[in-house]
Design a protein around this nucleic acid. Sequence first.
DNA 1: ATGGCTGCTTTGAGCAGA
Length: 260
Amino acid sequence: MTMRIATWNVNSLSVRLPQVLDWLGAHQPDALCLQETKLTDDKFPHSALAEAGYAAQWFGQKTYNGVALLTPMSAAPVEAVVKNIPGFFDEQARVIAATLGDTRVIGAYFPNGQSVDSDKFQYKLAWLEALQTWMADELQAHRRLVLVGDFNIAPEDRDVHDPAAWADQVLCTPQERAHFQRLLSLGLHDAYRLFEQAPRSWSWWDYRNLAFRKNQGLRIDHILVSDALKPAVSACTIDKLPRKHERPSDHAPVMVTLND
DNA sequence: ATGGCTGCTTTGAGCAGA
């Protein structure tokens, strides 16, 4: 039994819907978590996705943020849907979680933080603290758990095209990296690093400066799997192809394959 | 490189992203 779970920050689902439909057709994942849909719930394109064979859970807001979780309509309906971090008041739509069979899938759009001296960075740290507490609870409740999304954290210098330029900048600060390590110490594993990967592998490239052509990016989109799932992981890949399309998202999809 | 590019906004030049 194979299960494939993917994540993609689409930077506006309105603009990227045709690319998402293409990607679903090409890869047919068992789950695709989307970030930065930038749509209020009444505008979510559930009909177009249903025509493509995908059921959706969605949680959005105007202009910013917004997340969704897509699953094949041929699969059993998802259960226990949770929106945002329980107990953490948040006006921003950043998290959607659901149970698929016996696997808990949590899709998240972590705060960016903007700059270390901004209020947004303090919000990011508070959000991360709340996430740690919630993930500890979720891991108690679900042996098979996957946390995916745009983490807005480059875990190590090898995840950064120019570590010197990015040193202590937002996405690369010791505080953010410590939070990433704390997630791992809860019993999660960075699926991408379970395998030998090409050096200079990124999941995001700035729209500016021909960054994609020059392969100047960051690896900030991640898939973490629980201890119980780690032995089942047979692959984890970043799909750079959509970044080459006309009007691309600045992020690439990341996908994990589980074999049980 | 105090930038660039893209998407959004009760359509404007400003915000946010990363």
